[in-house]
């Protein structure tokens, strides 16, 4: 593997992450643009959000000071011959370069309970590896702000709880969040697996769509916007701009449901490498 290819892969990741910290992805931008503010202070908050996005673009600074923790889903083709150590290295170095050159806040501490010493680099990234069909590598990143992450949660429902149980669990978690996560929010829902898998799926959900759950997503979105939490938690609507669901098999005794709450400033990036780019 030539050094120049590694450098260019790291650069591509860093550039995508820096762009994502300044500009909303097209789906989030569209949802924000199309949202009609009603009631409370909705119009004022949505106007501030639009002005904020314009200033972030003009000044080339992050749209939000919490540039987040790097969360990465690395999907590696089953046929791929790309060394795993290389995948790990380009992710870590890409994140390092993005944080340095993109003027990210260093928001990561080395140990959660006692020391809480800032690592000074916004590293490590939290990487999840999965296999997929084909070859090459796809990297899906979230830059996860923690005002919203603190509102994310998991519930272990009874296996008979069904769609209504899932719906109620999500609504309760969202209602408890109130104005804390910078609404209007984007919701990722993970259903099934084990407790930890449901939590993982609730983040993977931002990058996939599963037609089996289209109606449930629409139901959650509709009722979320009737909660009255509103932009900034200052009443009215919209409260949520999007809901996506990912699911997988689970145990006969359970129905795990996890919710990841993303603020309106949805920072995400997807970077695909063909086999020949990294081999």
């Amino acid at each position: 593997m030539e050094q120049s290819r590694v450098i260019s892969a790291v650069q591509r990741i860093a550039d995508s992450l820096i762009t994502a910290s300044r500009l909303l992805p097209p789906d989030a931008a569209k949802a924000l643009e199309e949202a009609v503010p009603e009631g409370g202070k909705a119009a004022g908050v949505m106007d501030a959000i639009r002005r904020n996005l314009a200033i972030a673009r003009e000044r080339d600074i992050p749209m939000c000071q919490d540039t987040g923790a790097f969360w990465c889903l690395a999907e590696i083709g089953r046929e791929s011959r790309i060394p795993l150590s290389l995948v790990e290295r380009i992710i870590t170095e890409g994140c390092r370069e993005a944080a340095e050159k993109g003027c990210y806040r260093t928001s990561i501490v080395s140990e959660p309970v006692y020391e809480r010493k800032n690592t000074g680099t916004n590293l490590p990234p939290f990487i999840n590896y999965e296999l997929r069909d084909g070859d090459g590598v796809r990297l899906s990143f979230l830059m996860k702000g923690f005002g919203s992450e603190n509102c994310s949660s998991v519930r272990m429902l009874n296996p008979t709880a069904g769609e209504d149980g899932v719906f109620r669990a999500v609504m309760e978690m969202l209602e408890a969040a109130g104005g804390k996560p910078c609404p209007p929010v984007f919701l990722g829902v993970g259903i099934g697996g084990t407790m930890d898998r449901a939590a993982f799926l609730s983040k993977k959900a931002f990058f996939v769509s599963d037609e089996r759950y289209t109606e449930l997503s629409a139901r959650i979105l509709k009722v979320a916007n009737e909660l009255g939490t509103g932009p900034g938690g200052l009443g009215g609507s919209p409260t949520a701009l999007g809901v996506s669901i990912a699911a997988e098999p689970t145990h006969i005794a359970g129905l795990p449901v996890a919710l990841t709450v993303n603020c309106w400033a949805e920072r995400k990036a997807v970077i695909e490498f063909r086999e020949e780019e990294l081999c």
Partner: peptide
């Protein structure tokens, strides 16, 4: 940004302060 506890509300009332909310996520602004 976001809501406060009842204890904070009581303290604001007792000492005649203010709690103001800035626009969440609007770091560039």
């Amino acid at each position: 940004k976001g809501p406060r506890s009842e204890a904070v509300r009581e303290a604001v009332e007792k000492y005649h302060g203010l709690y103001l909310q800035a626009y969440g996520g609007c770091g560039a602004l």
